[in-house]
């Protein structure tokens, strides 16, 4: 009989999420970047935030699986294509934060489903020592990467799990003037030089930093993280251009803590939060005009040729692009 008591007790103990007045957030940002921001919000408002970090793909998949019974209230901090997919899957609802009025229109979904928190982009991160050994200059064009000298020396993200990979695919697509066949041809050739595709976007930075590969194609913040850690890295941009990425925020449809979620989303577009992007060395550009900008980031972004991206088109074609990558590029 004591067994039954034990079972009942454990049942009660395991009752669903305590802290119903806490806010539940899914984010694709690395914890080191997102946690301080969430902490700042909690410190300021007293509302605790429960969050999990998932890669973009996992995030959308999980939220979709939970459609009928959403666990999260907000999706905060994920690349735009993830939100496009989320919009298509019907898991977010439109909300236009009044504080985001000043955010430029191209950084918002026209139907108000999501708004950009920050701006991001892709770059080439190279191991300075290795390049010197091989007598190579850091790559400044997409075509540079096709050089046989880079065979087995490139690491980049796997399109099945990482949003960064999609940024890469989109960058190539837009850089080749929206010629899908040319883009596929290029990717097949690039594949010959790739050592391994990493699960997450930033997964190639440390190995490259440690000398296991020469070049890593990654999002800007990930590359800068590695540099911050003290690794001797060089960052360059391809002159043909890279996709402009927005990191967004959206309200989950059917969120249990809708009011708290709205308040949090509103806070995202205050100067306080946007300044944190600089203060915390997140290495992304703020979207609210007038926010303080990290000089290093600004210098970097100046070099980049940013290609605008049609997110609605991305939302509709994402699966197809990834499928083509799986079936044509990585097939051996």
């Amino acid at each position: 009989m004591s067994t039954i008591l034990l079972l009942v007790a454990s049942l009660l103990l395991a009752a669903p999420a305590w802290g119903a007045d806490a806010l539940n957030v899914y984010t694709a940002w690395p914890e080191s970047l997102s946690q301080p921001i969430f902490k700042a919000y909690s410190a300021q408002t007293g509302v605790p935030i429960n969050f999990i970090r998932l890669s973009t793909g996992e995030l959308v998949a999980r939220a979709t699986a939970e459609k009928n019974n959403p666990r999260a209230d907000v999706i905060w901090g994920a690349p735009g294509d993830g939100f496009a997919a989320a919009k298509a899957a019907g898991i977010i609802e439109p909300y236009r934060p009044p504080t985001a009025e000043k955010v430029p229109a191209e950084l918002k979904d026209p139907e108000g489903y999501y708004t950009a928190v920050s701006r991001n982009t892709l770059l080439f991160m190279s191991n300075a020592k290795l390049l010197k050994e091989k007598g190579l200059k850091p790559p400044t064009s997409w075509n540079d990467l096709l050089d046989p000298a880079y065979k087995g020396q490139i690491q980049t993200a796997d399109a099945r799990t990482s949003g960064t990979a999609l940024t890469r695919i989109l960058s190539i697509y837009y850089a080749f003037g929206r010629d899908e066949e040319k883009a596929m041809e290029y990717q097949k050739k690039l594949h010959q030089n790739v050592q391994v595709y990493t699960k997450s976007g930033g997964g190639c930075t440390i190995p490259t930093a440690m000398g296991q590969a020469m070049v890593c194609i990654a999002h800007m913040p990930d590359a800068m993280e590695a540099k911050k850690k003290g690794y001797d890295m060089l960052t360059t941009f391809p002159r043909e251009g890279v996709a402009a990425v927005i990191e967004g925020v959206a309200l989950v449809k059917g969120a249990k803590n809708r009011d708290a979620a709205i308040r949090f989303i509103d806070w995202t577009f205050t100067k306080t939060m946007q300044d944190l992007l600089d203060k915390n060395e997140v290495y992304m550009l703020p979207t609210l005009p007038g926010g303080s900008i990290n000089p290093a980031v600004q210098a970097l972004m100046k070099e980049a040729k940013l290609l605008p991206v049609d997110l609605d088109w991305v939302g509709k074609n994402r699966k197809r692009l990834v499928d083509r990558w799986v079936n044509e590029v990585i097939k051996e």
Binding site: A17, N50, I52, R53, S200, G202, G203, E225
Partner: peptide, 19 residues
Amino acid sequence: SLSWSLVTVRILEGITNLE
């Protein structure tokens, strides 16, 4: 989930985030 996290998952995340 949001309420319950496990050390092994954190380890995997750490690996994928290069921490």
